[in-house]
């Protein structure tokens, strides 16, 4: 039987992963709140260990086809991709929130791509670096890339994972309520990385709770 994410991590490990994601995203939300000078509301992180097709379906059912994402690759003991995703219609509003009201609409449009990349860079780095520190590992994080498309395109970025296309999909909803901006953070890993993550989570559980995941 082909292993699936659900069979790779046990309940305690998923719980530990959720906690790590929670801490990472909380740091990211703090960064976003500083950038937009407003409170950022977060949903409880939902770590959903699903295959690629299911991940596409989940996001596709919740959101329209016109999405924008900031995408970064991370490499180290674990390798994967992380995406900050929100509806394309809201991207200018997010940029406006970050830049402030000093600039004209023409200037905001001119800066849109760069502002999205920089905003994504701060949020995703904040999240990944917090997780890496808690796992006591180093991650090399690529430059941010802004992409536009739908959930199928976002979860089929090239090159595909070498070891099959089973992925882990973590998503969390964040919202800047005053600005009507909300979105998701998704993390994708293939099975070998998930197996490596299992080892790191075991160490994290041991350090945190003094017990092994069993």
């Amino acid at each position: 039987m082909t292993p699936t994410p659900r069979t790779v991590l046990n309940e305690l490990e998923v719980d530990a992963l959720t906690e790590l994601v929670n801490l990472g995203i909380s740091h990211a939300a703090l960064s976003l709140a500083k950038m937009v000078r407003e409170e950022v509301a977060l949903s409880v992180p939902k770590v959903t260990l699903v295959g690629r097709e299911e991940a596409i379906k989940i996001l596709g059912e919740r959101e329209s086809k016109n999405l924008v994402a900031v995408h970064q690759v991370f490499e180290g003991d674990i390798t994967g991709r992380v995406l900050l995703i929100f509806p394309e219609a809201r991207s200018l509003e997010l940029v406006r929130a970050v830049i402030g009201r000093d600039l004209s609409i023409e200037e905001i449009i001119e800066l849109e791509q760069e502002a999205l990349a920089e905003t994504g860079n701060v949020i995703l780095n904040g999240c990944l670096a917090t997780m890496a520190n808690l796992l006591q590992r180093n991650l090399k994080i690529s430059l941010p890339e802004v992409i536009r498309g739908d959930s199928a395109e976002f979860f089929n970025l090239q090159p595909p994972p070498e070891a099959g296309d089973t992925v882990m999909f973590i998503y969390i909803n964040f919202a800047v309520r005053m600005r009507n901006v909300d979105g998701y953070i998704a993390m994708l890993m293939d099975l070998p990385s998930l197996a490596a993550m299992k080892v790191l989570l075991g160490e994290f559980i041991q350090r945190t709770a003094g017990t092994s995941a069993g």
Partner: peptide, 25 residues
């Protein structure tokens, strides 16, 4: 940098540089 991994902070300090987290306050 927004990348506040301990390794990056330590490498910055090893060159005698201060580490300033992004977003910059």
């Amino acid at each position: 940098s927004a990348n506040h991994q301990q390794e990056i902070v330590a490498r910055a300090r090893a060159t005698g540089a201060s580490f300033l987290p992004k977003p910059l306050t």
